[in-house]
């Protein structure tokens, strides 16, 4: 594989991703690993993996994004997740709208213009309640496998109401619900609802312009998408490889930096 023209790396708080794109901006290689504490070592190792898999020994031009973007010394440029997600979503889906990205560390809502430009954005970065970690932590407490989380929640017939959207309070509320004999499924559904309501609040702060797009690792959880649809009345579109959108966007920025324009989806 030597057709790779540009690279993107997204050093997230939960996972680190590398994407390579060929001319026209088509994704042709991707790597994903759980993020490790020694990020710099991991970055070197993953870049070596990318070089080996692609035959491109330089892995350049490279644009870094994500929580640990500043740690990527090999990068030609560093760009925020907002810009990268916008770029990635527009290339993947070919339209503007409202992109909701739920990451491990934060969540964000980006309003995209018809040409994919960022018009406005909101970030939830102080509170864990609207993030993937919120679900991850609580599912661990409830003994449910992360992969099955959404399924289990959707299967619930009843729904427990969680009055707190604060992670700390929610956790004590869950303990007290369990103590009162409420089942795991209704609690899970209530939890998803709380998360989604938090997201909807953010969506409203930038204004909802359909279509609604969902990315980040959480996009693989069907309950989040379904509840988001129920709460907003809009159809939710999930791009292919929702978890890689940031790294993909970074690669597209890298591609532009060498004077190439990404094509259409």
């Amino acid at each position: 594989m030597t057709g790779i023209r540009a690279w993107g790396i997204d050093v997230g708080s939960s996972t680190t991703k590398i994407v390579g794109v060929e001319a026209g901006g088509t994704m042709c290689l991707h790597l994903l690993e759980d993020s490790e504490p020694r990020a710099e070592e991991q970055i070197v190792r993953m870049l070596q993996r990318a070089a080996a898999a692609s035959g491109d020994q330089r892995v350049r031009p490279l644009v870094a994004t994500g929580y640990g973007r500043k740690l990527v010394q090999q990068a030609d440029r560093v760009v925020t997740e907002i810009t990268c997600h916008a770029r990635g979503a527009y290339r993947a889906l070919g339209h503007g709208g409202t992109l909701v990205d739920v990451g491990g560390q934060d969540s964000k809502v980006i309003k995209l213009g018809p040409q994919g430009e960022v018009l406005d954005f909101a970030m939830n970065d102080k509170c864990a309640a609207g993030t993937g970690r919120f679900l991850e932590n609580t599912c661990r407490r409830l003994g449910v496998d992360l992969e099955r989380l959404g399924e289990v929640a959707l299967a619930a017939r009843d729904e427990a109401t969680l009055s707190s959207t604060c992670t700390v309070f929610a956790e004590s509320e869950i303990v007290s619900l369990l103590a009162h004999g409420v089942g795991v499924e209704p609690i899970l559904k209530g939890l998803h609802r709380a998360l989604v309501q938090r997201l909807v609040a953010m969506i409203h702060t930038v204004g909802l312009t359909p279509p609604l797009m969902l990315s980040g690792g959480v996009a693989r959880n069907p309950a989040v998408a379904r509840l988001l649809e129920a709460e907003t009345g809009e159809t939710v579109v999930v791009p292919p490889h929702p978890q890689l959108l940031g790294a993909f966007g970074a690669a597209l920025v890298a591609l532009e930096s060498v004077g190439e324009r990404p094509g259409k989806p």
Binding site: V79, T80, I82, F121, M123
Partner: peptide, 23 residues
Amino acid sequence: VEVDLNDAVSHQARTRLEAFLEM
């Protein structure tokens, strides 16, 4: 950008500012 005087400029606040300037 919301701040607390005692927090060093958080990564998040910086990202927010950076993204705004990119915009």
